[in-house]
Design a protein around this nucleic acid. Structure first.
Lengths: 210, 210
DNA sequence: ATGATTAACTATACGCGTAAACAATAATAC
DNA sequence: GTATTATTGTTTACGCGTATAGTTAATCAT
């Protein structure tokens, strides 16, 4: 039960007791600074100062700045999906629409968060790639596919492949958020109206053709 | 005492004759290196070596790396819109669809270019902001709005506000490209099919509701 | 004890974008 | 000529992320 490892020769590895605690402290500090100053403007030296440790100390808990960043992403996605889960609607079709709108609205409400999550410069190893593969984000988005299937089961939504439809919807809301948030100087029409128009049209239009 | 205005005292400003030539050389070199190694990996020192000058020499012609980058964006948009202009179709509605698809396809064909253009980390001053305001990109996208109006004029396309519809379409194709290109490890369905489904559904769905 | 071995932690160093200090140059003013 | 002054071009310097060299500490075998 207690560790009956073979005895190693050198200095024993440190008990990873408060490791998780320290990680959380770092992520919390990072979240705060990222939101306040932007990812770019927060240096590992700044962050270390905020946490109260040496810059390289951070590398005991995270392999890179990027790794800390992805932890912050999780914090945001937690909040976002918690919000989406709460959504109730009078029909599966209405719920699907509200899910899409809710997703869009969340990012519009916290545009800095959107930029922190989606404006990754280059796809560095350990960046987006690893995140999608390890964070369970794929499962989270599966919620959208199930909502599509439900709406289809009641006949409120046409089209064949639910996966396809859900992925399309993802692209649509993501595209809306991307454009409206990252190109604010473009003369956009009202964001709320625009998003509703697009989402509603897309879903309605599925009936027209497979 | 009134003639001090005619002649200046110091060294005269260099004739800006081959200024434009030098700028083009720099942009061409940057384009090449950005595509080969990624924006992040190309340093001003690298670029200077490629051009055959000192790193700070570049700052005579461009205020920053970002400024060079936006010139490269223009090169890509030139190519993209040249391609779109060539599109002929048997009806305005079909043309609109092909414009949207063509836009998407261009980025899918050159995903590195998409990343170079759209994956800006932070919106630094002089970055995206200045670009949208000074590059004439807004006028270029107006082509889409006109295509929408044409399709409406033949009754092939419903919905009221052409601007709104065009902007929605922009968001849609941009979102498709963003997701498929920057999250390649996500289990996307076939990109060509997905994009056609989304674009067609969106346009069809406009009829269903204002 | 005394090494040997290994982990924990720190300090230094590199290339980055680029501001600022600096040096060189070419014109006018005397 | 020399002095003054504006422009040109280079060098140095800063903080950045982080690899790595270097230092200290903790455990074992002897």
């Amino acid at each position: 039960m207690t560790r009956s490892e073979a005895k190693s020769r050198g200095r024993p590895r440190q008990a990873a007791v408060d490791e998780s605690d320290m990680r959380q402290r770092i992520v919390a500090a990072a979240r705060k600074l990222f939101l306040r100053d932007g990812v770019e403007a927060v240096s590992m030296r700044n962050l270390a100062a905020e946490v109260g440790c040496s810059p390289m100390w951070l590398y005991r808990y995270f392999g890179s700045k990027q790794e800390i960043l992805t932890q912050v992403w999780d914090v945001f996605f937690d909040e976002l999906f918690a919000r989406l889960k709460k959504i109730k609607a009078k029909s599966p079709r209405a719920r699907l629409e509200q899910l899409a709108c809710g997703y869009f609205d969340y990012w519009m409400e916290y545009p800095e968060r959107f930029m922190i999550v989606f404006l990754q410069k280059d796809l560095t190893p350990g960046g987006t790639r690893a995140y999608v593969e390890t964070s369970g984000i794929v499962q989270r988005f599966d919620m959208l596919r199930r909502a599509v299937e439900e709406a289809q089961s009641t006949g409120e939504l046409a089209g064949e492949d639910a996966t396809n439809i859900a992925q399309g919807l993802m692209c649509v809301v993501q595209g809306l958020a991307l454009n409206l948030i990252t190109i604010p100087e473009y003369p956009w029409n009202d964001g709320a109206k625009l998003s509703r128009l697009v989402i509603r049209s897309y879903l309605s239009g599925l009936s027209a053709r497979g």
